[in-house]
């Protein structure tokens, strides 16, 4: 299908984009790489009156390091981050997860912030942001604010972003010393949305597991360092708490089983890596 009609503004500056979304409210949609929004336009699942294209805004292009995080702005494409020299050293979780985001052809266009703003509950980038306890940088014509990833994702494709706000950047905490990171997912085919995706962050005191594809948003739990049956029990409780549903791709029972198994696998892998770098 083809999109319904909309006006189009190729914003030349951040101020121009923010003024446009302030004026048009929920009639306007931001488009960056278009890899999530344009399919929805084509299928007429959304019919905005105005599209504001932010990909020509020079100041939103290049990631920068700031206070122990990599701040990735709205215009950074997924392929650019993945090709960044030493990305596996500075952001090991992203380096592991990004190859599962769509395909080479969609990563060449799609942005990290676009995926976060879209907030599909199965998507890998929102999952990593939650696992890493990152931040979403929101900006409107009137104010700027930063929201913890845990608070940003509200429900299926629903976020804390107001209609006049742009996801200006995401802040991804850089690799911390003595900390291990791991990612795994199960999907029907590589590049499809995951049935269940898990991301783990483990240091000397604490283990954190984030799960995507089960609840209506990526959801994380923190535990002290657990193993054996204590870990089994914790994972089992999480698997039930997430309220897995049944759809064409998987039964609820299969999803719970994947949470237990993938969860254990990534936690053990991250714990092993943490031990190695503490070694």
């Amino acid at each position: 299908m083809k999109p319904a009609r909309f006006d189009y503004l190729r914003a030349a500056s951040l101020d121009e984009a923010l003024a446009a979304i302030a004026r048009h409210g929920d009639e306007a949609r931001i488009v960056a790489g278009g890899q999530s929004l344009v399919p929805m336009l084509n299928m007429r699942l959304t019919k905005p009156g105005l599209l504001v294209d932010v990909m020509r805004i020079e100041t939103l292009r290049t990631p920068r390091r700031e206070n122990g995080a990599l701040v990735v702005p709205a215009g950074t494409r997924q392929a650019i981050l993945l090709d960044r020299p030493h990305v596996a050293d500075e952001l090991p979780l992203l380096a592991a997860a990004l190859p599962f985001v769509g395909h080479v052809q969609t990563r060449a266009r799609g942005t990290l912030c676009g995926s976060v703003a879209h907030a599909d509950p199965s998507a890998e980038i929102p999952l990593c942001l939650v696992a890493l306890e990152g931040e979403v940088h929101l900006r409107s014509a009137k104010r700027a604010r930063r929201v913890r990833a845990d608070d940003f994702f509200v429900g299926m494709m629903v976020t804390d972003r107001a209609h006049d706000e742009l996801v200006e950047a995401i802040g991804l905490p850089l690799r911390a010393p003595g900390t291990g990171y791991a990612f795994a997912e199960v999907g029907r085919r590589h590049g499809d949305f995951a049935i269940v995706a898990c991301a783990a962050v483990v240091d000397g005191r604490r283990m954190r597991l984030a799960v995507g594809g089960v609840a209506d948003r990526p959801t994380a739990r923190d535990w002290p360092l657990l193993d054996g049956t204590a870990l089994d029990d914790a994972l089992n409780a999480l698997a039930w708490d997430l309220g897995a549903g049944e759809d064409i791709h998987a039964t609820a029972r299969y999803r719970r089983d994947l949470v237990r198994r993938l969860g254990r696998r990534v936690l053990e892998q991250a714990a092993e890596e943490a031990r190695r770098c503490q070694g």
Partner: peptide
């Protein structure tokens, strides 16, 4: 026409892109 099949892939500024997901 929603980015899955890849039949419409072209190169934009040297990078592959789904033409059906590009305005």
């Amino acid at each position: 026409e929603h980015g899955v099949c890849g039949a419409c892939t072209v190169a934009i500024d040297g990078e592959p892109a789904r033409a059906c997901l590009t305005l």
